[in-house]
Design a protein around this nucleic acid. Structure first.
Length: 309
DNA sequence: CCCTGTCAAGTCACG
DNA sequence: CGTGACTTGACAGGG
């Protein structure tokens, strides 16, 4: 099990997700911003390595407007060495990486233009990971998309579109259950049609499910990951007490986290803590796993399949 | 320098 | 049919 947090670090002074307004786009502005973001990313990764946080989500804002028509700059070439250096650092420290394009990326959209823009956005994400020389355990997670009045048809459309995606995108894509439309069960149907691994989001599952326990959902989604895909990825946010819905709680509820770990034993996975205070909660999680012998997974050990005995 | 309206992109629920 | 939620900060223009 590796423990991580998404996109930004609140301890360090640098900001790794700097962007700017489309109106103020210029090549100089882009280069300066990407320069800043890459430098900061390496700082954050160093911080993570020092604190045994080996799972990290790289922000989609690393290269602002990378998939927008306004951007005709060859950032991959210009920043080749920086990207390669970051990738080497990730590999040397056995870090796990994910990326998560935002809600505008919809490969099952009825609108061909939306689909087209989504492919460009996915290609951008794949290029970031490719430029870093990361293997296919570095994943890009998206939701299934819209329902458009017919979920089965929309799942079929997702699957058909998926099969036609560029290989560099297809090999990294995973689907995540969302909080209103597609449950873990729905994602498993997508897996059945495409073979895509299913990323389990515990918070979304709590808000939207088909009656199965978190344990069952972890087992079902976990079985969709082949060895070359890397360990299953799980997103976890604390449920906010008293609020049925609402955003992520501001800090880790250690009791709830312990309960989740206990409930899902002995299944191993890498866990992303999507919590407002970022690395602060992730560090708490590392402490919990290290100091509590009741938990069977070993943090940051190289994973091996459970022995049959 | 401070204030504040607005920011690339989509979909669904709600009133 | 129009607006807000999703999630949230910070960019950038105007005073």
């Amino acid at each position: 099990m590796k423990i991580g947090y998404p996109c930004i670090n609140l301890t360090l002074p640098c900001k790794g997700d700097r962007t700017f307004r489309l109106r103020s786009y210029s090549e100089e502005r882009l280069v300066a911003t990407v320069r800043n973001n890459l430098d900061c990313l390496l700082d954050v990764l160093r911080f993570n390595a020092e604190h045994e946080l080996l799972f990290f989500r790289i922000t989609s804002d690393l290269v602002p407007f990378a998939s927008h028509p306004v951007c005709d700059f060859d950032w991959q070439c210009h920043f080749r060495e920086d990207l390669a250096r970051i990738g080497a650092y990730i590999r040397n420290n056995r870090m796990r990486i994910s990326m998560h394009p935002d809600q505008f990326t919809l490969i099952n959209s009825l609108d061909p233009g939306v689909f087209e823009r989504s492919v460009k956005e996915l290609l951008y994400h794949a290029r970031v990971l490719d430029s870093m020389g990361l293997d296919k355990s570095a994943r890009i997670q998206i939701h299934v998309g819209g329902v458009y009045g017919d979920k089965s048809e929309s799942i079929r459309r997702f699957s058909a579109r998926f099969k036609a995606l560029p290989d560099r995108v297809r090999r990294r894509l995973v689907v995540e259950n969302d909080d209103r439309l597609y449950t873990v069960q729905d994602c498993l149907r997508v897996h059945g049609e495409t073979g895509i691994p299913v990323l389990f989001d515990a918070f979304h599952h709590f808000l939207h499910n088909d009656g199965e326990t978190a344990r069952e959902a972890v087992e079902g989604s976990g079985a969709t990951w082949a060895e070359a895909d890397g360990l299953p990825m799980v997103d976890y946010s604390p449920r906010r007490r008293g609020a049925y819905r609402g955003g992520h709680a501001s800090s880790l509820d250690t009791d709830d986290f312990r309960r989740f770990l206990k409930e899902t034993e002995p299944h191993d996975f890498d866990i992303m803590l999507e919590i407002k205070d970022k690395e602060s909660s992730a560090l708490k999680a590392v402490e919990i796993c290290r100091n509590d012998r009741r938990f069977s997974r070993v943090v940051n050990e190289v994973w091996a399949p459970p022995s049959p005995s």
